[in-house]
Design a protein around this nucleic acid. Sequence first.
DNA 1: GGCGAATTTGAAAATGATTTTCATTTTTAT
DNA 2: ATAAAAATGAAAATCATTTTCAAATTCGCC
Lengths: 143, 143
Amino acid sequence: MQNSECKKNYRTRQQEALGAYFRCNPEACVTADDIYMYFIGRGDKIGKATIYRSLDRMVESGEIKKFLSDGGEGAMYQLIDGGNGCDRHFHLKCIRCGTVVHMDCEFMDEFERHIMEHHNFRVDNGRTIIYGLCGNCSANVAE
Amino acid sequence: MQNSECKKNYRTRQQEALGAYFRCNPEACVTADDIYMYFIGRGDKIGKATIYRSLDRMVESGEIKKFLSDGGEGAMYQLIDGGNGCDRHFHLKCIRCGTVVHMDCEFMDEFERHIMEHHNFRVDNGRTIIYGLCGNCSANVAE
DNA sequence: GGCGAATTTGAAAATGATTTTCATTTTTAT
DNA sequence: ATAAAAATGAAAATCATTTTCAAATTCGCC
């Protein structure tokens, strides 16, 4: 009810609880049901629909990521570490686990310059996402 | 029944059909239902269960990859590294006029190599679209 | 401090993708 | 060819996720 200890502007107790859950478990990699069970286990009152809705919001706002698990239990959710949005780098997004790697090095300038000079095209870093496989997943996918 | 035209060792007509589908559509990025509809549309006889089972096998064997779409329609399947040249270039898409420029030059290899070596990430050219402004639009847009 | 509007919640029902069941068909090995 | 093993398809079952809608909560404002 009161959000005295809360800095972020979550509107409701449930939304704050979810935010706190991820902040207190920064490495958590969980399904919606995992989270539901966690709260139910603690005796908290929360509905699954609310969890799904809140997770959607957090994915939308870029706080957490959603991806397909290796097993087949449903979507998994995990905190996005950096979280600080910046336009001076590319995003490399793993198509397997959803991890976003931030590419922020001088080579990028070279890339932009090449595309500008040789292809007459001005890259928009903010909108561009490079898809592929991160190191982990690359190692796990047989080829 | 006869697999005269088939080189790969798929056991059944349905499995061969699925393999052929991906080989003939190397850039296809589809849901199980897309594939089902495709075959039904052609008048072929195939069940959804078989499609799911075959897709699982192909993911397992590393022929195709499975991932969560950005929209929310279910899992998507796509050939891994089509092997065909179509995966060998980037697409530069203008966010203003929609023009797609194909970037197909030796610099791309350099780009991939850099990302692989410095960022431990294997770029998937087929799925990546670089957004920005084409020459025309760049000249016309005030910034 | 409280009232009404707007938003959020939760339980249950609905949805929809995927999996399982099982009788039948096809393939494989002999 | 023939029997055993594996694969198929239609339908039913499963299960994660979404929707519905009435009740509860929060927000804006006086």
